[in-house]
Design a protein around this nucleic acid. Structure first.
Length: 268
DNA sequence: AAACTGGTCAACCGCGTACCT
DNA sequence: CAGGTACGCGGTTGACCAGTT
């Protein structure tokens, strides 16, 4: 199959867009839409190829583009989704309203990869053998304050009732990012009072990670457990033999999206 | 002040694939 | 079904800028 040339090289402009070009493109799309990218530049009077116009529109000019720095919640979401989806930037972008795949890809390569590496390089002390859960302070600390030494750090996940009322329904990450993620406060216990939090103790984990389920690599999240998220819960911190579960988002998603489902745990 | 270096981000390139004829 | 076209995606590039030497 012969591939059509990306664009006519002759006479077509490349490189940064000028404000005038932007305005022409915006005006044209507002009037006629963008049914045919290939024909668009010619009809609009732009000396660009359709591909360039599409990219400019989707990555920069679209009215629903959210400008500015990524929030901590957005970054956590990206990290979490990247763990699940890999380099599928468009799939990740689809779950972050107002963000483009290009932007997410850039922020991943420039910020998040480094952040993740730093997190993973932090020393961990294995106090108990076997599959246990470690929550990394730096990853979930809402503030950028230096992490203070703690004997037994715990984390509080507050999930407002509104955000988890649909726990038993199929819950997309879009919902999570817009409402749940906003409501989801992750904080070190040293920073605020756990007042009003429902504590989830070892029994919680032993139920989630019950020997039968867990040894087989399968965990059932019961409705009872997921409904615990209607309030909040406190996670005990232990050492971990793998980074696999080194993510609050991982567990949070498990509880809020997997009620009643049989979940296969990736092998450590 | 100039040169250098590293980070950031917009834009490009090429491939895969859906869709059309 | 095969060939052609257009689009979307992920990887890469290069211009620009700020900080450092």
């Amino acid at each position: 199959m012969v591939r059509a040339p990306c664009c006519e090289k002759m006479g077509l402009k490349k490189g940064p867009w000028t404000p005038q070009e932007d305005q022409i493109l915006i005006n044209y799309i507002q009037l006629y839409g963008h049914g045919n990218w290939r024909a668009l530049p010619k009809q609009a009077g732009l000396l660009r190829c359709g591909k360039s116009c599409r990219l400019r529109w989707t990555n920069y000019l679209r009215p629903d583009i959210k400008r500015g720095n990524f929030t901590r919640e957005e970054e956590d979401t990206i990290i979490n989704l990247h763990q699940k989806l890999g380099n599928r930037w468009s799939a990740i972008a689809a779950r972050l309203p107002g963000r483009t795949d290009n932007e997410i890809k850039n922020v991943w390569h420039t910020h998040l990869k480094k952040r993740l590496k730093q997190t993973q390089n932090q020393p961990t002390s294995s106090t108990e053998p076997g599959r246990q859960v470690m929550m990394d302070v730096s990853k979930f600390n809402k503030h950028d304050d230096p992490i203070e030494e703690q004997e037994e750090p715990v984390y509080h996940v507050r999930s407002e009732s509104a955000s988890t009322s649909s726990v038993h329904e199929e819950c997309s990450r879009d919902d999570m990012s817009s409402s749940t993620a906003d409501n989801m406060k992750m904080e070190d216990s040293s920073m605020s009072s756990p007042e009003g939090f429902i504590e989830i103790d070892e029994n919680f984990w032993s139920e989630v990670l019950s020997a039968d389920n867990y040894n087989s690599g399968m965990v059932t999240i019961s409705d009872d457990l997921s409904s615990a998220a209607d309030g909040a819960f406190e996670l005990p911190v232990h050492a971990c033999t793998s980074n696999m579960y080194d993510s609050m988002d991982f567990w949070y998603n498990l509880f809020t999206t997997s009620a009643g489902e049989l979940i296969e745990l990736p092998e450590i």
